[in-house]
Design a protein around this nucleic acid. Structure first.
Lengths: 227, 227
DNA sequence: CGGGTTTTCAACTGTTGGTAGATAACTACT
DNA sequence: AGTAGTTATCTACCAACAGTTGAAAACCCG
């Protein structure tokens, strides 16, 4: 462990998800220059000398999207294929970032949202990283309260069902969703009601997430005695 | 994204777990030199120019323990605190490594197993990394077949119960364990029987893991319709 | 007031998992 | 052998969890 040793460039990448028009979408920017000119890439950039990876991810994301919009950020994984960047070796640590539904952050001209089930050609290993992020999000929706980072402050059960359905990629029963999340004390009713839409129908009760920071709630720990 | 940019040393660390005498233990070596002289550290070392992180972790572990003994290896997380190493900034990517119970790899003189609930003073941020690794192992025991990497080829339910109890840190019911893992098709009975011990008692049936590579088995995906 | 629409709730069901106690298969000792 | 001791295995029970269905509630509009 002397002072010798190879050194590497290192970048932080953000997989920013938002549910837009009932589809889970990811923020990408289009590369103008080689390599992968024209292909779409995850926002991110180099790690600085005195910077932590999480800070670096936030800093680079700030160039694409207003940071307060990012309701949750967590480290995903580190990619180390020596030739993942054809120019020079760059290690990449990916972060999962979630943006509340309905937020409309201003975007630079080269940047756009893409539904994850209709991705354009992606640069580097970014498509595979997006896949990992989807998996992580899907799993955590089932056993944590991570939905708080996708949902607005208050919402109806129907809105929440659509949001979960988009993020999970399959139908979700509103009855089930309400019962499970209420029993786990992940969501709670507020006194408010939605104003009825023009289409008529019973006005929906408004709910909110009990906590807006990550809590693991699912009792998915088998083999544990009751006492 | 020019050619300029800071470069960093990067190391791979291995959190090697084995159940020894019914206690979950981790492999550590004792530092002789400053910094943290006398403290215990995780095995690991520098990433080389053309090497992937997983390969690097395996390579450094090979210096401490025979590699074929490592039944499972997976990336855990990357630590980036700029001052986690007081000499110079070093990023560290930790791996979770599991060694089959009963294996007795030869160890260098400075290296020893330590029960995780009685850790000595640890160097750098290694104690906290060991904590993360325990969490990961505990969670995955509940919803994957990862026990295959801790258990021998064949085993009795009682042996498996002791192994799970050590890794999970609480009592485990043999009845429950057998029923759940059998129903999930994680383990299956073999034709063999354990030879009775000198203490007497009914000889136990021998089981084996159906698969010896990681499979996610727990249906912990709520909100999914049956068909 | 009655038909259309959406939300909410209650009841039923199958599955999972924790518990307790009975039964099976062995050793050792008298 | 017979009996006690020991360990393993199995069944039955029960509570909690989760998916489904359909009815009731609360609004709109004409």
């Amino acid at each position: 462990m002397g002072v010798t040793g190879d050194r590497f460039r290192h970048e932080a990448l953000g997989v920013v998800f938002q549910v837009r028009e009932d589809r889970l979408s990811v923020l990408l920017w289009q590369r103008a220059l080689s390599p992968f000119a024209g292909a779409w890439a995850l926002p991110g950039g180099q790690l600085l000398a005195a910077e932590r990876l999480g800070t670096s991810a936030s800093r680079h994301l700030a160039a694409k999207v207003d940071i307060p919009e990012i309701a949750h950020l967590e480290q995903l994984e580190t990619r180390s294929d020596p030739v993942r960047d054809p120019r020079e070796r760059v290690l990449a640590t990916a972060y999962l970032a979630l943006v509340t539904v309905g937020a409309q952050p201003r975007l630079p001209a080269d940047t756009a949202w893409h539904p994850v089930d209709a991705l354009p050609a992606c640069a580097f290993d970014h498509q595979s990283i997006i896949g990992s992020a989807r998996e992580r999000l899907r799993a955590k929706l089932s056993y944590t309260n991570i939905g708080f980072a996708l949902a607005p402050e208050t919402f109806t059960i129907a809105q929440l069902r659509d949001l979960y359905a988009a993020a999970l990629g399959h139908e979700v029963s509103a009855t089930n969703l309400q019962r499970i999340l209420t029993r786990r004390e992940v969501i709670e009713p507020t006194s408010g009601q939605s104003r009825p839409t023009s289409a008529g129908g019973r006005p929906a009760a408004l709910y909110r997430f009990v906590s807006r920071s990550l809590v693991v709630t699912n009792p998915f720990a088998a083999f544990r005695p009751r006492d």
